[in-house]
């Protein structure tokens, strides 16, 4: 592949999802991330109670992400052919897990603001 620059990467992503959808998703991602930072700053600490729920959501996020990618690409676990494939698979899973955790934590914090009982 020639010249894999950041500009190329953006162009390729725009083509995968369509220009409109891609930037809407980027926007949604930025909003969720900002909301997460907002609740962190607002609450001035991580709520371990909420973090527990967020952690519990991680395996589900991981599995959902992997199944989603496989369904979208006509693939299965049997297609793993080498170390790099395992890395890709783990990457997808970690992405799903972390994403789910951030989402759950943020939604919880927005819906149920900090309680006195929270550590």
């Amino acid at each position: 592949m020639k010249d894999l620059t950041f500009g190329t990467l953006i162009a390729v992503f725009e083509e995968i999802f369509g220009r409109g959808l891609f930037w809407v998703m980027v926007g949604a991602a930025v909003i969720i991330t900002l909301a997460y930072l907002y609740v962190l700053i607002r609450d001035r600490s991580v709520s371990w109670h909420k973090f527990l729920w967020a952690q519990l959501s991680m395996p589900f996020g991981a599995i959902a992400a992997v199944l989603f990618v496989q369904a979208m690409t006509h693939s299965s676990f049997a297609d793993i052919g080498g170390p790099v494939d395992v890395i890709v698979l783990l990457g997808v899973a970690v992405a799903g897990a972390v994403g789910a955790a951030i989402l759950v934590y943020t939604v919880e914090s927005l819906l149920w603001p900090k309680k006195a009982t929270d550590a």
Binding site: M25, A29, T33, G61, F68, A95, V98, G99, I102
Partner: peptide, 12 residues
């Protein structure tokens, strides 16, 4: 590219 939530990071 597939998990909307991972895009949280990518998005930033």
């Amino acid at each position: 590219q597939f998990t909307p939530t991972r895009r949280g990071f990518l998005g930033l």
